[in-house]
């Protein structure tokens, strides 16, 4: 298969899952009428269901998944660590903490844009804490330990913050923030998340060559005129913006950023820069598929999307760890 062909396939898969996400829902629709009403701008109920309920959910699945996939690939490329991921390393949990503080304090009611901004600040803080705490050139183990600590701390702080809210429902919403969901989101949420994710993707994509240069180590990158600390700064910022924007509207959806890069890496020749772009597509596809699955599963209440991705992702993490162990024993160069 040619290089360009692979990209077309990826786009086709994402488009198909987007369409599927719009088709799946609890209310049966007359599709002929719905499509006609959407196209003519007629304000009917089927058109409303499609445009205001299912379309935002599908779009958010793609946007959030792309952000997580891209951020995961960027972190793995930067840290040269195949286990790095915003969810596992606590960056997403920090974003959720920021969003929770902004939302339940009532600030968001005054200005909706505070929500993603606070989430991005939280993610930025988490990223900086991770880099500083783990240090440059940290081993896989150190990085994961620090990430686990940040993740646990941010999760506990989120639960604590929700318990402080006088609103009787708030406490039970810890589930949403720590095990994200795309249920009942609206176009308002798309409008909040999309600009942040696009804004975050700009520095990430601009650092593609920097990440490529890092694939032979920091010293070679320096010799090639790439300053690793500069790459780290921009990748950190891009990750925080993209993850913050995503988490602000969906809560923490873990493991997408872990699975997506690994799924696409062999198809792009393990190039870190290209992995980032392909992983955005794979992350979107994965999130959309998982979100369709939670709607089709015969559970009483709809399963949280974050539960679904964790069900897939946690065993995957275990499998990676096993391969890591075997790889070290066998002297493999990567992982």
């Amino acid at each position: 298969m040619s290089g360009a062909g692979r990209w077309w396939w990826l786009m086709l898969v994402v488009a198909a899952l987007l369409a599927l996400s719009i088709v799946v829902g609890p209310a049966g629709l007359s599709w002929r009428a719905a499509i006609a009403d959407v196209l003519t701008g007629h304000d009917s109920v089927p058109a409303l269901v499609v445009l205001e309920i299912r379309l935002p959910r599908a779009l958010l699945g793609a946007v959030v998944g792309a952000a997580l996939g891209m951020a995961g690939a960027a972190m793995q490329g930067l840290l040269r660590n195949p286990l790095a991921e915003p969810g596992v390393l606590g960056v997403s949990a920090c974003a959720a903490l920021g969003a929770v503080i902004a939302f339940y304090s009532g600030l968001v009611q005054l200005l909706p844009a505070v929500l993603p901004v606070a989430a991005m600040l939280g993610a930025l803080l988490g990223t900086v804490a991770l880099f500083v705490w783990a240090g440059r050139g940290a081993t896989v183990t150190t990085l994961l330990l620090v990430g686990v600590a940040i993740n646990a701390l941010a999760g506990a702080a989120t639960a604590f913050g929700l318990a402080l809210s006088p609103n009787p429902y708030a406490f039970y919403e810890v589930m949403f923030w720590l095990m994200g969901s795309l249920a009942d989101r609206s176009l308002d949420h798309v409008a909040l998340a999309l600009p942040c994710v696009v804004l975050g993707a700009i520095p990430l994509l601009a650092m593609r060559r920097g990440l490529d240069a890092l694939s032979l180590g920091e010293e070679t990158a320096l010799a090639l005129g790439i300053v690793p600390s500069r790459v780290a700064r921009w990748v950190g910022l891009g990750t925080a913006l993209a993850v913050g924007g995503a988490v602000a509207v969906s809560g923490v959806i873990g493991f997408v950023g872990l699975m997506a890069p690994h799924a696409v890496r062999p198809f792009v020749g393990y190039r870190p820069g290209a992995t980032m772009l392909a992983s955005a597509g794979a992350g979107a596809a994965l999130t959309l598929a998982a979100d369709v699955a939670v709607r089709l599963l015969p559970t009483g209440r709809e399963l949280q999307l974050g539960v679904m991705t964790a069900l897939l992702g946690a065993p995957f993490l275990g499998w990676l760890a096993l391969r890591h162990r075997a790889g070290r024993a066998g002297g493999a160069a990567w992982l």
Binding site: D212, L216, G217, E219, G225, G269, Y270, R271, P272, W334
Partner: peptide, 20 residues
């Protein structure tokens, strides 16, 4: 010490020299 971090292919390794 240039430790390859990803199993990229031989030609890609060499082409990094053109990055500057």
């Amino acid at each position: 010490q240039a430790q390859p971090q990803w199993p990229i292919c031989g030609r890609d390794v060499v082409s990094l020299g053109r990055l500057p």
